[in-house]
């Protein structure tokens, strides 16, 4: 954790549906927080590198999300588009503590 980064508690894990997401509103761009089928959490800037689609609205499968606009597949851990598409969404650190989700901003 760098000096400029701080952890913000955003919600309980159970507030996010499995294989689903929640949107965290932020002045400098919303963040999509995802929960996978095996209860891992990930956070990405809620903008697809392709045409800015809201990734939070996509279908979550494995550790990927499919953008609702043009079906790009984005890796949840890195934000990178799955081949053959090219591009990257910014990812944020996120962790689970006592059932609560903390986002590193």
């Amino acid at each position: 954790m760098t000096d400029s980064q701080h952890w913000v508690q955003i919600c309980a894990l159970t507030d996010i549906p499995p294989q689903g997401s929640r949107v965290v509103e932020r002045a400098s761009g919303n963040v999509a927080v995802f929960r996978t089928h095996d209860d891992k959490v990930f956070a990405l800037l809620d903008r697809c590198p392709h045409k800015g689609g809201p990734l939070s609205q996509g279908i979550v499968h494995g550790e990927s999300v499919t953008c609702p606009l043009h079906s790009w597949n984005i890796d949840l851990a890195t934000g990178a588009a799955r081949a053959p598409d090219e591009g990257c969404a910014r990812h944020f650190p996120v962790k689970l503590e006592h059932g609560m989700v903390l986002l590193g901003l």
Binding site: P17, G20, K51, G53, P54, Q57, I59, V60, P68, L69
Partner: peptide, 18 residues
């Protein structure tokens, strides 16, 4: 619901700007 495209999950039609 998590196996439905966003439109069918939220019962509205997503547009290019979200």
């Amino acid at each position: 619901p998590q196996s439905r495209f966003v439109n069918e999950r939220v019962h509205a039609n997503i547009q290019k700007d979200g």
